[in-house]
Amino acid sequence: MLMPNARLTATIAATFLLSSPALGQDEPETADMPSTADRPDHQESARQHEGTSPPDLEIPPLPAGMTLDEVFDYADSEPPAHFPDPVPDDQLFAFVLFDQLEYRVTDDDQPDQLGWEIQGWAGGDLNRFWWKTEGESVFDGPNEGESETDLLYSRLIAPFWNVQTGVQYANEWNPDEYDDRWSYVLALQGMAPFQFELDHSLYVSEDGDVTFSVEGEYDLRITQRLVFQPRAGLAFAAQDIPERNIGSGMTGADLDLRLRYEVKREFAPYIGVRYHFLTGETEDIAAAAGDRTEQWYALAGFRFAF
C-alpha cells in the first residue's frame, strides 16, 4: 500500500502530467526562405489575375451538341440538381466502444463488482453526438451501485481535441435509497503529446455543486496485439457536498492496470487490477463514518467495439 504522502505526491504529479494538453502545435523554426504563409491559394491567385484574356488555342473536341460558350457557361455553373455528389465525404458514422466491461473481485470480504465504462458517438468528422456511461454495481451482495451517463455535443476544435458540452445523469442506489441528479458538463477530450488519451470533465450539478474529473490512459504495445494499459481517474470537488459525503479538494482516485489481447481490433479480453482510494476531507468523512477509504480489486473483462 502507498503511504498517504507518497500517494498524494504521485497523484499530484499524475494530475499535472495528464492535465497539460498542448492545444497548439510546434512552431516552426524561422529561416531565410519563402514561407507558406505569404503564398497565394487558388482563390487569391485567381483574384490577382482577373481581367486577363486567354490566348488563342485550338479548340479541343467538345461535348456533342455544345458550343464553346455553352461549355464555359456550364463550367461556371453549379452542377445539375440530379447529379450525385462525386464523393460521399460528409457521411455520418456511429461507433460504440465498451472500453471496460469487467468483473472486479475484492481482496477481502467486500462484495465483488460488475463495472463498465462505455462510450459512443454518432456524427461526422467535426460535429458529433457523444455519450459516455460508467458505473458499477455490487454483484454478490446487496443491490447497490452507481452510474454516471453523459450526453454531449462534441466538436473537434483542434486536430487532437474535442470540446464537449451537455448534461450528465448520475444515480446511486442501495436497498433503502435511490439518489439521482442532473449536472451540466463541459469536457475536453483528446490525445495529449506522448499519446496519452485524456478526458477532462467539469460538472455543475443542479444544486450548484462544482466537481471536476480527469481520466488518462496510455497504451503500451508489448506486441502487435498485446497491450498494457495504465490508467488513472482522479476526482475533485470545489466545495463540500455533505449529502454526497464529499469534502472540497481532491476526493479520490482509481489507478488501474490492464493487460489486453486484441484478438481483433474490436475485441480484446483483458485482466487487470484497480486500486481505489479516497483522499483529503472526503477520506476523513468516510473514515469518521467507519467506511472503507481504499480498496484493491483484481479484474477481468472484455473490451469491444462495434
Binding site: E50, G51, S53, F72, A75, D76, P79
Partner: peptide, 29 residues
C-alpha cells in the same frame, strides 16, 4: 473547357474528401 475532377487517387482518401472540382472557365472574374 468544362468541369473536371482533381483528387488524391488513394480511394479511401478520395472518398473522405481529398477531392476538388476544377472548372476550366472563360474568365477568372
Amino acid at each position: 473547357p468544362g468541369q473536371w475532377a482533381f483528387h488524391c487517387h488513394l480511394l479511401y482518401h478520395m472518398e473522405a474528401g481529398m477531392f476538388r472540382t476544377v472548372a476550366v472557365v472563360r474568365s477568372l472574374e
